[in-house]
Design a protein around this nucleic acid. Structure first.
Length: 444
RNA sequence: UCGAAGAUAGCUCAAUGGUGGAGCAUUCGGCUGUUAACCGAAGGGUUGUGGGUUCGAGUCCCACUCUUCGAGCCA
């Protein structure tokens, strides 16, 4: 009977078959301990020379790391360890003998492993990350579906920069000139929200910035909900409820993987409602209490400006200083207009502010969500488009959303890989996606 | 794009300007409870590329290439 390793605990005492690969093998004279993997888990086998045929024994001696095998044996409990099972192997069928395997069980550099990413993902740690990623995406879809959101896929080829800020990848598009790879589906999602009420997009996005940090990749997945008749506070309520659902569900369903990743569960458990909500102005006060200056680059180096001048955008040190006092995601809202994108709604009480939200993950994982209430006033939006020197013609359809039945609406964008990095406690975002794309990497 | 560090065996690293080493991996041998198993033996090198200083350069100097870390941009 063919069994997957993840179900092995149900078959103690029974003879089963595992179809998989040899992960590692240790031998001790007339005893061998092959560790097998089958994609669902890892299990140690026991082969003793006295209990198997000569052919089986000889075949085991031929096996190399990552050879594919079908083994038969009886499931037993580990003699010393609790909740660990072994397979007392009595038969072996070799499917394929592996050539000498390039990835050993000793240390390797990241670049060496990244060049062999197609093989690296076979290891317990990497496959645990990918399983958690799957659980995160599935729980996002389940949350959205059961809360009445419609999946609304946005196009990837677009004629213009959405926010007009970051650099985009471009390609020729038949007779229509240049097309750009989408950096956000938001503008399209807004159209969706005004048609369907609550929608979300989930797809790849592209940024051509030469960013070589542990938080940036050039191709990443983003989930962007957009809701009609939601103001900024409704938006924050949703963010909170949504993040708690996803985090708690991963904790519940992916305990083993988080253990492999040595994730500190106490810190994840604390992700419960309510999250701290801090205005930009309050955040600046925190910075000044901690004496964190604005760092300005000058021709001969750096200039430190204190107190932190109101109106300037935050950099990494500022985010860190604000977040370090909290053990939950922190929502910073009501930002200075000049620091944020053109589509964010002006605060009716203060024209210098826009109703934007940044959500910063705890433990120094940085911004995982950026969102806002959108500008729904046609004339104010036109003004902002001019201020930002954006091509008005390209935004006519977007402006239509304000001409025909404009309503307050809000949304946000969640970076999937940053979410995975946070939940898995990854040092670098490049391990959060099966095949990463960075400025210096397009292979494998 | 800017700043810092680095590139030596298949991998991870060591080597005061004076004969380039170790662990792992590979091959062979040993071992009945191993768990990145262990023990013994063997093979394995144009020190990133190009130039310079020197009696002598992995080591010092210059240029280039690539990588890592940080900053900016953001999710």
């Amino acid at each position: 009977m063919w069994i997957y390793i993840e179900k092995i605990a149900d078959y103690v005492g029974q003879e089963i078959t595992i179809k998989g690969w040899l992960y590692n093998i240790r031998s001790s004279g007339k005893l061998m301990f092959p560790t097998l993997r089958d994609g669902t888990g890892f299990i140690q086998g026991v082969v003793s020379k006295n209990d198997v045929s000569e052919k089986v024994w000889d075949d085991f001696n031929k096996l190399t790391q990552e050879s594919s095998v079908i083994v038969k044996g009886i499931v037993s409990k580990h003699p010393k360890k609790v909740n660990v099972y072994e397979l007392q192997i009595n038969n072996l069928e070799i499917v394929s003998i592996s050539e000498p395997y390039p990835i050993s069980h000793k240390e390797h550099g990241v670049e060496f492993l990244m060049d062999r990413r197609h093989l690296w993902i076979r290891t317990p740690r990497q496959s645990a990350v990918l399983r958690v990623r799957n659980e995160i995406i599935q729980s996002i879809r389940d949350y959205m579906y059961s809360n009445g959101f419609i999946l609304f896929d946005a196009p990837i080829f677009t004629p213009n920069a959405c926010e007009g800020t970051s650099t985009l990848f471009s390609t020729d598009y038949f007779d229509l000139g240049k097309a750009y790879l989408s950096q956000s589906g938001q503008l399209y999602a807004e159209a969706g929200a005004l048609a369907l009420g609550k929608v979300y997009t989930l797809g790849p996005t592209f940024r051509a910035e030469y960013s070589m940090t542990r938080r940036h990749i050039t191709e990443f997945w983003m989930m962007e909900p957009e809701m009609a008749y939601f103001d900024i506070f409704d938006n924050m309520d949703l963010i909170e409820d949504f993040l708690v659902y996803v985090v708690q569900r991963v904790i519940k369903n992916k305990k083993q993987e988080l253990e492999i990743l040595e994730r500190n569960m106490d810190k994840l458990e604390k992700v419960r409602k309510p999250f701290p909500r801090i205005t930009y102005t309050e955040a600046v006060e925190i910075l000044n209490k901690k004496d964190i200056p604005l760092i300005k680059k000058t021709e001969d180096g750096e200039e430190f400006i204190r107190p932190f001048p109101w109106g300037e955008d935050f950099g990494a040190p500022h985010e860190e200083a604000v977040v370090e006092d909290f053990d939950k995601p922190v929502m910073i809202y009501n930002w200075p207009a000049k620091a944020k994108a053109f589509y964010m709604k002006r605060d009716p009480d203060n024209p210098d502010l826009v109703r934007g939200i940044d959500v910063l993950a705890p433990e120094g994982f940085g911004e995982i969500i950026g969102g806002s209430q959108r500008e729904d006033d046609l004339n104010l939006l036109l003004e902002r488009i001019k201020e930002h020197n954006l091509p008005e013609e390209e935004f006519q359809w977007y402006l239509d959303l304000r001409r025909y039945g404009s309503v307050p609406h809000s949304g946000f964008g969640l970076g999937i890989e940053r979410m995975v990095s946070w939940i898995c406690n990854l040092e670098h975002i490049r391990e959060s996606i099966p095949f990463v794309r960075r400025p210096n990497r397009i292979r494998p």
